[in-house]
């Protein structure tokens, strides 16, 4: 097929945008594996920087993973029932509640963190534990689970399915766990992946909430950007990308499946 010149122009533009998005990422990959970035790739490739980063910063990786998993669990436990309730109620109150839930995302993270810090900062043991950061992450990620789960619930004709379960003798709790939850698994999965991804990368809140004992991966990254040499910072970024990209791939696969389901 012959393409018009407009198509070519748009394609070129898109490729340019793509280059803008990808070139720095590639540069960071190369820098993290190059012996000396000033001299260029000709100085040889090495895993030394990654090893060095791992030595210095591996606790941040573990803490971040721990936080992300805990955050996903917490958000599921409070978010799935909340999504169910919001879909079920669908009145002025539920819409107001949804608004309230999204507010921590709309507000600058720094402001939320400051509010948390000034209110709960004086509780020493809470302040210095990783749970303090967890609270911030849960607040920030909650809507990212509730929204997709609500969308799936609205699509699945859940009320009728629930009526069917009730007609077969299932009480409210049983209906929730045997009909509601299994039928929005895809939404929950998409939400959980998003929550884990965001929690792993959260910085705005975490920077204010962390203590020297509770450094997460992005906090460590910021540290290394400020103080370490470029190769170390790049290697560290590389580790972060290695953690986050598989999650993003899975997320894209699931959202593709979800949108196909929508058309069916």
């Amino acid at each position: 097929m012959k393409r018009s010149s407009l198509f070519i122009a748009q394609l070129l533009f898109t490729l340019l945008v793509c280059a803008f998005m990808l070139v720095p990422v590639l540069m960071s990959l190369v820098a993290g594996l190059t012996r000396n970035y000033f001299q260029g790739v000709s100085s040889g490739l090495t895993f030394d920087w990654i090893a060095q980063v791992w030595q210095a910063y591996s606790p941040t990786v573990w803490l971040s993973l721990q936080l992300a998993v805990a955050c996903a669990v917490c958000v599921c436990v409070i978010g799935v029932p909340a999504a169910y309730a919001l879909v079920r109620m669908n009145n002025r109150f539920s819409r107001a509640f949804e608004e309230l839930m999204v507010l921590p995302v709309a507000m600058p993270g720094l402001a939320s963190a400051l509010a948390l810090l000034l209110t709960y900062g004086q509780f020493g043991s809470f302040r210095s534990s990783w749970l303090f950061i967890l609270v911030g992450h849960v607040l920030f990620t909650l809507p990212f689970l509730v929204r997709p789960v609500m969308a799936v619930m609205q699509r699945q004709h859940l009320p009728t399915l629930e009526e069917a379960a009730a007609s077969l003798g299932a009480g409210p709790l049983r209906r929730f766990f045997s009909v509601v939850v299994p039928n929005c698994r895809a939404g929950i999965l998409a939400g959980v992946l998003m929550v884990v991804t965001l929690s792993l990368g959260e910085f705005n809140l975490t920077w204010m909430l962390h203590t020297p004992m509770t450094k997460t991966l992005p906090v460590g990254l910021a540290d290394s950007y400020a103080s370490a040499r470029l190769e170390v910072a790049s290697a560290y970024t590389l580790i972060f990308l290695l953690m986050i990209v598989p999650l993003l791939v899975a997320l894209q696969a699931i959202s593709a499946r979800l949108s196909r389901g929508e058309q069916r």
């Binding site: 399915l161 077969l168 009909v179 299994p182």
Partner: peptide, 15 residues
């Protein structure tokens, strides 16, 4: 759920 009825729904509402 406590009436002991069987119901067939319009679009069947199969799980």
């Amino acid at each position: 759920e406590r009436r002991d009825v069987g119901m067939v729904f319009q679009n069947y509402a199969l799980f």
